[in-house]
Design a protein around this nucleic acid. Structure first.
Length: 638
RNA sequence: GCUCACAUAGCUCAGAUGGUAGAGCACAUCCUUGGUAAGGAUGAGGUCAUCGGUUCAAAUCCGAUUGUGAGCUCCA
């Protein structure tokens, strides 16, 4: 009998009969391990515990707690859910695909008879639990594509037939558990009994193969974990995210609202929200001036012809709002670049004048599809911290690096981690192949030079050029697209921008579109969730509230309030006829950083007693001391 | 835009099977002057998102519209 040599992760080598399975190997090491292991990695391939090992190689057993175990477990759980659905609803539904995703898994079903509703979840979960209890073995089998097509066709599973036909393989693998069989690459756990913690979470529509021209499927979302403890931790995370939801906090903190009467996706900023915006916008202006940008402003509407010149009319029309007055068409700007082009063109530019960096906090309107709107994170009118850098080709590299540094500085100030992505030419685009290649390599080399790791998204660029996207990671480790740097050779061409070079000839400049936080609206939404509404002192719209204990101190409180306000502190006083505890509670719930308590004791000493929103308090201090204290803290955090 | 669900007082939510609405918080008035997360009493607040239909009768059933949510597709 032939033997093969199996090397284990600890370096030890076991010699086993050819055709032994990972399960056999695991059993040879220990029964506990054999029970714990759900799949195996052989060289670089993932295998089932029951796959025969015909060659020598490195074998690692994947136990339930291994990093790659969760995806396998969830994928198997998706099969379990599909099995339950088929047993419950039979021929009324067809199965399609069911992968594992970040926080769980889903399975897409087609049915024109059955519509899934959340009330079905309990039935499906119950059936899944039964199948777990039955502890069905999950087995793999291989057959030719023709046989598999025959099999699925006989079962009426047309989507599976289509999948196999498109795969174009000679052989495919199938997994079987009880009466349920599914086309699948694997690997899978050995038995259904291993699945312990799962829960259906939601139902939603999804297009077959993600294409809106295809049939709408019904997607059942669910989640699964190796054990109940991890499952509870996941639910706690969801709970935390829900508490931080900027739509909820936005209302509670009285920052902004939306109005059905005004229109969907149009933000209405309340005093505190508008103040917060103003603080961020002032910060932006200061930071841009510091880095050699010029502040400019363009009009809200520009003639339709100009949008034709820029290519927006061709490529972006369906997202634009148009209006017509005196038989002249205008487009409401969805981007800020046009006016910046016009500024550049107002005079002859020398190579010595470049780069020109035009910065605008520009309000743009885009008709986003109604279904994508989401609080502040996706709106129809928003303000970009937009700039267009018009430079010589030899300056691209330094400018891109400058922008990347800017992004990193700002991310640091707000306490975000970040990652970057490079997006290349999409199908619908303008410009020559050569320009695209140059622009793409310019961005790439800037990324490479600073040693910034990045992912590449093929075909994800803007219609006029490739881009670097920056994703911020918030306190809950969620990613948000904010900054983007886009390289554009096309617009200078279309607008015939030129500069006079050292040689006295006219040359074509290059343009970089870039935003740092992206949209002020979205960024504030992200900030609210990142800080859970507890803005750092320098951002808090209300930094302190002066609270009296009894009416006796009312006049002194008013005096303190005006002194603090004169010192530039954003302060309120709360003189309402309520008990101290009540006022403290309200101030704390509105997440005001400092509550300044004033009773007879403080009044006599001309002091105030600060208390932080986390409940900690400081020793009483004078008004001047508090003013210095606040100035220090603001200084330290930005 | 597509699929499914939802829309009752400023907010959070009750209101089987059709018979013109209720709670808590918030708000107002009064009492209370109370030292670090809710003092008490009284009161005012709703064309049940909008429009249409079915019915003797609609918050409740049906349709359309608007808005919202979860996704899909798209995106700052």
């Amino acid at each position: 009998m032939a033997t093969v040599k199996i090397e284990l992760p600890d370096g030890s080598v076991r010699e086993v009969e050819a055709g032994s399975t990972p399960y056999d190997v695991a059993l040879g090491i220990g029964e506990g391990l054999a029970r714990q292991a759900i799949a195996a990695r052989f060289d670089d391939q993932l295998l089932d515990m029951s796959t025969p090992l015909e060659n020598s190689g490195k074998l690692a057993l994947i136990t339930q707690n291994a990093p790659e175990a969760l995806a396998i477990l969830r994928h198997s759980c998706a099969h379990l859910m599909a099995q339950a659905v088929k047993e419950l609803y039979g021929a009324d539904v067809q199965v399609t695909i069911g992968p594992s995703i970040d926080n769980g898994f889903y399975y897409d079903f087609f049915s024109d008879k059955k519509t899934f509703v959340p009330e079905d979840f309990a039935d499906i979960e119950k059936k899944m639990a039964e199948l777990v209890k039955a502890d069905l073995p999950i087995t793999r089998e291989e057959m030719t594509s023709a046989e598999a097509i025959e099999l699925f066709r006989s079962m009426g599973e047309n989507y599976k037939v289509e999948l196999i036909e498109d795969l174009g393989e000679t052989n495919v693998s199938l997994y079987r558990q009880g009466d349920f069989v599914d086309l699948c690459r694997g690997p899978h756990i050995p038995r259904t009994g291993i699945l312990k913690a799962f829960k259906l979470t939601s139902v939603a529509g999804a297009y077959w193969r993600g294409d809106e021209k295809n049939a709408m499927l019904q997607r059942l979302y669910a989640t699964a974990f190796a054990d109940k403890k991890q499952f509870r931790a996941h639910l706690a995370r969801l709970e935390e995210a829900k508490k931080r939801d900027h739509r909820k906090l936005g209302r509670e903190l009285d920052l902004f609202s939306f109005s059905e009467e005004a229109g969907a996706g149009l933000v209405i900023w309340h005093p505190k929200g508008a103040l917060l915006r103003t603080i961020i916008e002032d910060f932006e202006r200061k930071e841009h001036l510091k880095r050699g940008y010029d502040i400019v402003m363009g009009p809200q509407i520009l003639k339709t012809e100009l949008w034709k010149t820029s290519g927006h009319y061709e490529n972006y029309r369906e997202n634009m709002y148009f209006t017509e007055i005196d038989e002249q068409g205008y487009g409401i700007k969805p981007m800020n670049c046009l006016a910046h082009m016009l500024i550049y063109k107002t005079k002859l530019r020398s190579y010595r004048d470049l780069p020109q960096r035009y910065f605008e906090l520009g309000m743009v309107h885009r008709h986003e599809k109604s279904g994508v709107l989401h609080g502040l994170l996706r709106v129809r009118g928003f303000t970009q911290d937009d700039a267009h850098i018009i430079c010589r080709p030899d300056q691209i590299d330094a400018e891109v690096k400058g922008v990347m540094q800017f992004v990193q500085d700002v991310a640091g100030i707000f306490g975000f981690e970040y990652c970057m992505e490079l997006s290349t030419r999409p199908e619908k685009s303008i410009g020559s192949d050569a320009d695209w290649a140059r622009a793409t390599s310019a961005l790439k080399s800037a990324l490479d030079d600073v040693g910034q790791p990045y992912e590449v998204n093929e075909g994800d660029g803007a219609f006029y050029g490739p881009k670097i996207d920056v994703k911020l990671k918030d306190a809950l480790d969620r990613e948000w697209q904010c900054a983007t740097i886009q390289c554009d050779f096309t617009l200078p061409e279309r607008f015939d921008l030129t500069y006079v070079g050292a040689d006295g000839e006219k040359h074509r400049p290059v343009m970089l579109h870039r935003v740092i936080v992206g949209s002020i609206e979205r960024f504030i939404g992200v900030l609210i969730e990142h800080y859970a509404g507890n803005f750092p002192l320098w951002l808090s719209p209300v930094q302190a509230v002066v609270v009296n204990v009894t009416d006796n101190q009312a006049e002194y409180v008013r005096k303190v309030e005006s002194r603090l306000r004169e010192a530039g502190i954003r302060v309120q006083s709360d003189l309402r006829n309520e008990k101290l505890g009540f006022k403290i509670r309200e101030a704390q719930m509105s997440k005001i950083p400092y509550m300044l308590v004033v009773g007879d004791r403080e009044m006599e000493e001309e002091k105030l007693a600060p208390r932080f929103r986390d409940g900690k308090s400081l020793d009483p201090m004078t008004v001047d001391e508090f003013i210095r204290f606040v100035a220090d803290e603001v200084e330290r955090f930005h």
